[in-house]
């Protein structure tokens, strides 16, 4: 093997090893940082893990926003038109947060089934619905229709 070739092989091995190790770390971190999305009925059904960082989305129930005495902690209900969960958030809500609006909250499910949000996202276009929320509402709607349909056929 010529020294030139040996050098080149060393170079290639070094680069592959370096990139490989780094890739390993990055992928491990990737798995730890995946956040799954759940809709309220899935949370109620117990599909969402407690204590892990997840996202939930749906519509803010009209009349449900309650502010606590410190002025910064807010509780509100989030619904997918089937089930409703309570969300608690401390901090300043985004400008477009309104009752009846579709939002996404990132946070963890507490033991008392109250979702503690670290961040609440409301989009900048009021005609815009986050795709996750739109899908969740659509799925919930179809489920509701098929159930009432089934109920209708039974005498």
């Amino acid at each position: 093997m010529t020294p030139k070739r040996r050098n080149r092989i060393i170079l290639i091995v070094l680069m592959i090893a370096g990139v490989g190790i780094a890739t390993g770390f990055a992928l491990k971190a990737f798995n730890e940082n995946l956040m799954f999305f759940y809709q309220p009925s899935q949370v109620i059904a117990g599909e969402a893990p407690a204590g892990r960082l997840i996202r939930v989305g749906g519509l803010v129930t009209t009349g449900s926003v309650q502010r606590q005495p410190d002025g910064l902690t807010v509780q509100f209900a989030l619904t997918d038109n089937i089930e409703t969960i309570r969300i608690q958030y401390t901090g300043i809500l985004p400008d477009l947060f309104r009752e009846g609006q579709g939002i996404i909250a990132r946070g963890r499910l507490g033991d008392d089934r109250i979702f503690i949000a670290e961040e609440v996202l409301a989009k900048h276009d009021e005609n815009y619905m986050p795709p996750e929320v739109a899908d969740a509402l659509k799925a919930a709607h179809e489920k509701g229709v098929s159930e009432t349909g089934a109920a209708g056929t039974t005498p």
Binding site: A29, F30, M35, F36, F37, L53, R55, E132
Partner: peptide
């Protein structure tokens, strides 16, 4: 449905 948290990008 997932999203990748920005801590991952930072890391």
């Amino acid at each position: 449905k997932i999203s990748v948290g920005f801590p991952w990008f930072n890391t």
